[in-house]
Design a protein around this nucleic acid. Sequence first.
DNA 1: AGTGTATCCTGCAGGC
DNA 2: TGCCTGCAGGATACAC
Length: 277
Amino acid sequence: MPELPEVETIVRGLRPRIVGRVVEEVEVVHDDVLASPAADFRACLGGRTVQDVGRRGKNVVARLSGDTVLRVNLGMTGRLLPVEEHAELSEEATHPAVRLLFRNGGALVYDDTRRFGLLECLSSEAWERKAAELGPEPLSPTFTARRLHEGLARSRSPARSWLLDQRRVAGVGNIYANEALHGARVHPRRPAESLSRDDAARLHRALRSVLRRAIEARGTTLHDYRDSEGDRGAFARSLEVYGREGEPCLRCETPVERLVFGSRSAFLCPACQPEAP
DNA sequence: AGTGTATCCTGCAGGC
DNA sequence: TGCCTGCAGGATACAC
């Protein structure tokens, strides 16, 4: 669910509310969202101060004292809800899985209906090693059209599968992959290596554009996604193909088609995005 | 190297 | 109302 723009929105809201707080107690409601046994997770976090909250790909990355990192992957339905006082929490939390209780009151609740998310407490060094396996940040200045073209050229995967692979580029999920491909007029099934330099340049531009606009709109809420204030994102109304099967393409009126491959839906305009280049 | 499939889990919409 | 199927912003592991 949450892709780069949603995670970015969550992180921005979270940062001012939890930096400086000290984790006093860790309540584990469902240990299946933890990467390690609950006792290890508690010991890893207990007593530490939150120093910063950032994002890498779709991961929320909280840096804590003692060179410790809490990585949160929100899966499909994960939410991070800062709560001011113990007493009246859980208003938003319908499926709390983990609660970090702060010294002097307040908490950060990890809520996750489907529990596909993952919380991992690890050393800075261990986190850096993992982060190095992720592809470049698509909004970083070092992610150039040329670099994208070079990456695509080495793979026969369908372009959409390529975009979803976090080792190739970090943070793109099914919504923005489909939107970017439509913006670039590239069929989602086109082999990555078949994209010309021009195709790659359009894809680069479309991807960055859609991610930036979605961040401005505070993300896309289809069902579950809420930011750290509990608010919905506004980008759903700006989607051009995702979820619009049978509706007219906004560019040419041709009905949007849905395909399934890689066990996920792909949405495209068959006129704007021809399968053959 | 790539693809198809299954798995984790819950909720919702739609058909009957 | 109930029961069924299919579907969902993700990630991973497996066999072929």
